[in-house]
Nucleic acid binder design. Structure first.
Lengths: 204, 204
DNA sequence: TTAGCTTCCGACCGATCGGTTGCTATATTC
DNA sequence: GAATATAGCAACCGATCGGTCGGAAGCTAA
């Protein structure tokens, strides 16, 4: 079903487009992601790129979904087999920090979702809604782990899960700035110390 | 020295351009700030707008400076006559929260500097450097107040000022997201509680 | 073998981008 | 009052934006 490529290869092509789109958008934002540049980077024509998505907005949504899948693979899945509650929460937070610190190959421009959130938080449209939906889902999962940890007595009984999650998100955004804008070598140390203040000393 | 306007009015025109630029850039970013749109908004020609700055980059830097001046007026100056240390630090933080929550007329798109930081943190150039310089200056001032508060015994002796500032910045970014992306009605309450956790209970 | 489907390309569209140029109109300086 | 300086405009520049269209190339099903 194709000219230069078979139907199966077409899927691969689409994946290549999304993968490259993630890298570009993590640096220049989802709006700064242009079809022409994406095509040039991949050695394709603009029509060839756009043919897989139809419109730029659909391409943005696909890129966002691709980034979320990569994030899930890096942060959520490795912690899935940890004991629910504080152990799993810590594992997720450690992986989140590692995602910000060492996932430069997939996300060279820093946190894809911080960029997308700030870029679209003052606009309407499906991209904004999709970003908000993702953050809400992640916050819900974090809050659930906090609740489990409180029930298990691993976090103080008075802890407000939503409050803890609010502060965690702020921690990750501050770390992202520390790494990307300031290239601070002690960024991860700071983040770990803030984490200890929130969840109690590490490896307690 | 001018055609339709005198030299004095030209300064006013420049201020109008910057003021409108701040509003536009707080929503769409400094890159999304386009000369054509700015001109249309102000009922001017593109050449008339650009004539005051020469290049878009200079316009971006002027807009950034204008935003910093407005921020200073809203956040730093009102706290300047407070007692150095914890009282002044608290006043600045409260004003910072108010800036994020209620300064919609000047900054309709939320925190101008979070937007600029995330937009330029993966690029080079003078705009990025200017953003970094501003944040560094603000962080230095915050850290100085923390140090004074520690010396006065208003904060625990073991407090690390840079660490406290790191967490404060995260708090403000999380609040910005809570307001802009989620329009959460309890956003300010959350921020205040996080602040209490950092600096001790309010009005102690 | 052939007909149809699909991927992808090359060429093109109108709109907009940042920026330049020549000019007009006015304020200021002499 | 003449000369000068300048704010702002209209028109235009090449480049790029998102997007469309027709056809070439090749896989697949009949």
């Amino acid at each position: 079903m194709s000219p230069r490529n078979s139907a199966a290869e077409a899927r691969r092509t689409r994946e290549r487009i999304v993968e490259r789109g993630i890298a570009l958008a993590s640096s220049d934002g989802l709006e700064g992601l242009t079809i022409g540049r994406l095509a040039a980077d991949l050695g394709m024509s603009k029509a060839g790129v756009l043919g897989h998505f139809g419109t730029k907005e659909t391409l943005q949504l696909a890129t966002l979904d691709g980034a979320a899948a990569a994030f899930s693979r890096l942060v959520w899945e490795p912690a899935a087999d940890r004991e629910p509650g504080l152990p799993r929460l810590r594992a997720v937070c450690d992986a989140w920090i590692a995602y910000l610190d060492t996932a430069r190959d997939v996300f060279p421009g820093g946190c894809f979702f911080t960029t997308a959130s700030v870029e679209f938080d003052a606009r309407g449209g499906p991209v904004r809604e999709s970003v908000a939906r993702m953050y809400r889902a992640w916050r819900r999962r974090l809050a659930a782990e906090v609740r489990t940890a409180v029930a298990a007595g691993d976090l103080p009984a008075g802890s407000d899960p939503e409050q803890t999650v609010f502060e965690l998100i702020g921690l990750f955004m501050a770390l992202n700035q520390e790494i990307q804008l300031f290239a601070a070598p002690d960024a991860v140390d700071r983040a770990r110390r803030a984490l200890d203040r929130l969840l109690g000393p590490h490896r307690a």
